[in-house]
């Protein structure tokens, strides 16, 4: 009994299909509670007014945008090393979810930046890196769409994902070097355990983060199962024609 058993597409589908509605439901419940809590029952910041409430969307979305790419990177590596189709398809499934998270982070950031910094967009390191991340997602998804053969596409996108990750990190440092920004530092630095946010905001924020994370998990599991089925349809049709 090892985790690799779930790399069998059939086993993956039979295991995840009953779980997905629960994960999805739990994530939606968490999001509803967390967002409602954050929206209605947390006080305004004395400096930022009610715009501080955008944090419950902005921070979790940004977190998941980066983690989604990280998941794609790991899935790509597993595909290249162990040749499990589920892994390649999971990477493919994660990309559209990741790009939506990036978009949410960018949009809420722009709406937040407008009243606080007096501008929708500034070429601040964090903002710029996120825009670049968005471009990476676009390229990755475009490459998947462009290639007919599923295994070829999986190989090429995996290589792109690995090279892209290296360059995304490089870009992050380059952009930091290029401009010091307006954006504040990390609100919840996990590594140091300190945080620059008080408890009344923190509890609903964590609920939203967990909610976004579970939503991502549910969507990726569901979309991976969809990709597995789509691949099976292709294979069956090819067999019938041949």
């Amino acid at each position: 009994m090892s985790i690799w058993e779930y790399a069998n597409p059939k086993k993956f589908i039979t295991t995840t299909t009953p779980i997905v509605p629960w994960v999805l439901g739990l994530s939606i419940a968490l999001l509803v509670v967390g967002l409602t809590w954050g929206f209605f029952f947390t006080p305004d910041d004395f400096r930022q007014g009610s715009t501080v409430k955008i944090i419950y969307l902005h921070v979790p979305a940004a977190l998941m945008a980066i983690n989604a790419w990280f998941v794609m990177l790991i899935a790509s590596l597993i595909w290249l090393v162990r040749r499990h189709h589920v892994s390649a398809l999971a990477a493919r499934a994660a990309a559209p979810v990741g790009i939506v998270m990036t978009l949410i982070a960018l949009i809420t950031g722009a709406i937040w930046g407008q009243p606080m910094w007096g501008t929708w967009w500034a070429w601040d390191p964090r903002l710029t890196s996120f825009l670049i991340l968005f471009l990476f997602y676009l390229g990755y998804m475009a490459l998947w769409e462009a290639i007919e053969d599923s295994d070829t596409a999986a190989d090429l996108t995996s290589v792109l994902c690995i090279v892209g990750s290296v360059f995304a990190v490089l870009s992050r440092y380059a952009v930091n070097f290029w401009n010091q920004g307006l954006h504040q530092g990390t609100t919840v630095p996990v590594a140091t355990g300190e945080r620059s946010i008080s408890d009344i905001f923190f509890v609903p924020l964590v609920m939203c983060m967990v909610g976004f994370g579970l939503l991502f998990l549910a969507l990726v599991l569901m979309r991976t199962a969809t990709e597995i089925r789509a691949r099976r349809i292709k294979a069956l049709e090819a067999r019938m024609r041949g």
């Binding site: 290639i147 290589v159 490089l170 440092y173």
Partner: peptide, 26 residues
Amino acid sequence: LTVGLRRGGLLMSLLVLPLYVPTLIF
């Protein structure tokens, strides 16, 4: 990456330009 594709040129610019970012900045 795009050698086997017909009309790969446009896709290739989409893939390559983000990779050019650090070089351009420095």
